[in-house]
């Protein structure tokens, strides 16, 4: 039992040794994969458990990055502290994402279904506009730089993003068998019945929203400190928001490992197309084509397609991916 539980730690330790044994470009590729895994599993905390499709996941990524940078640039004490200052600023970036999720839950969670998806997407657009139009504060379209003393080395960034990805996965796995996870599944399945059984729908969704925003905010901070430069298109990019959704859906939404499979697949296709193939047509066209074929052949995701998800989910106690209620059988 305890051996079985410790098994995932083995590949984790191997991965942690990556920066010392792997070539540099592969380390970078993995770092970006970890970022996508983090965002995709954070997205799926709402998308998979609650059936709330957050198209603005990047809002929290951007918030984390911008708050971190602004603190380092505007607070002399933090700047003077060097790496310790970066740590404090990055944690503050994560906290900023969490706090804004607490507050944003009030307007956004009044929305249901497609309206929630559109509302979260609008939030991302709103943040992009705000940052673009406050150049004195945010650098506008020129972006922001931090001084070299705050840069995160490739190794440090790699280990931090790996930890964030692992923590996000662990969070989803623990939720699947927890009290809160049961409440989330109940709310997804039937809000009316959940309320009648004593579940506080809003509070449950709000907690999930915050849990899904915090690692993403920290990931934004780490990403920013690693690259040393942020702007709207990088940390608040539309594709930054949509790729986690695609990763979760391609991999298998509602399954703990689904976003991982999806993220690795997406990154692999991306790297292969852009770096190793001489294409007669633009890479995104091929990319899109592959995604269309995959979603047609495995509509519930790769993992669900491979494992016949309903049975696997019932055994492990994790919820099956959301789908419309079946008609009565008898």
């Amino acid at each position: 039992m305890s051996v079985r539980r410790a098994l995932p730690a083995v590949p984790l330790l191997l991965l942690a040794a990556g920066p010392w044994i792997l070539p540099r470009d592969l380390v970078t590729a993995l770092l970006f994969t970890f970022l996508l895994i983090t965002l995709a599993s954070n997205y799926d905390l709402l998308g998979g458990f609650l059936g709330l499709y957050n198209l603005g996941q990047a809002s929290f990524f951007g918030l984390g990055a911008y708050v971190t940078f602004l603190l380092l640039l505007r607070v002399p004490l933090l700047a003077a502290l060097g790496p310790a200052g970066s740590t404090v600023a990055a944690l503050a970036g994560g906290a900023a994402a969490a706090i804004s999720a607490v507050l944003l839950a009030y307007p956004l969670l009044r929305l249901r279904g497609a309206y929630f998806a559109v509302g979260t997407f609008a939030l991302l657009l709103l943040l992009r506009l705000t940052v673009d139009n406050l150049p004195q504060l945010t650098g506008g379209s020129h972006g922001l730089y931090v001084s070299a003393q705050h840069y995160l080395s490739l190794r440090a960034a790699y280990l931090l993003t790996l930890s964030l990805a692992a923590a996000s996965l662990l969070l989803n796995a623990l939720l699947a068998s927890s009290r809160l996870g049961m409440a989330m599944t109940a709310v997804r399945e039937n809000e009316l019945a959940a309320a009648a059984a004593g579940v506080d729908r809003f509070r449950v969704q709000q907690v999930a929203f915050v849990l899904g925003a915090t690692p993403t905010g920290l990931a934004g901070a780490v990403f920013g400190l690693h690259s040393g430069y942020i702007d709207v298109s990088v940390v608040l990019g539309i594709e930054r928001s949509l790729f986690p959704v695609i990763a979760a859906m391609i991999g298998g939404s509602g399954l703990v490992w689904g976003p991982v499979v999806g993220a690795v697949t997406l990154r692999a296709i991306d790297v292969a197309l852009k770096n190793y193939m001489q294409l007669p047509v633009p890479a995104p066209a091929i990319y899109g084509g592959i995604l269309v074929v995959m979603s047609l052949t495995m509509p519930k995701g790769i993992l669900a397609g491979l494992t016949r998800a309903p049975q696997a989910a019932a055994r492990s106690g994790s919820p099956a991916p959301p789908r419309p209620a079946r008609p009565r059988t008898r």
């Binding site: 049961m182 409440a183 599944t185 399945e189 039937n190 019945a193 579940v199 919820p319 209620a325």
Partner: peptide, 26 residues
């Protein structure tokens, strides 16, 4: 506590978990 005229189960959850939700949050 109330029941619904048009039954409202949590369709994807097991029968025992449907009831356990009430035990946990009721």
């Amino acid at each position: 506590a109330r029941t619904f005229q048009i039954v409202q189960p949590f369709t994807q959850m097991s029968v025992v978990d449907n009831v356990a939700v009430g035990c946990l949050f009721g």
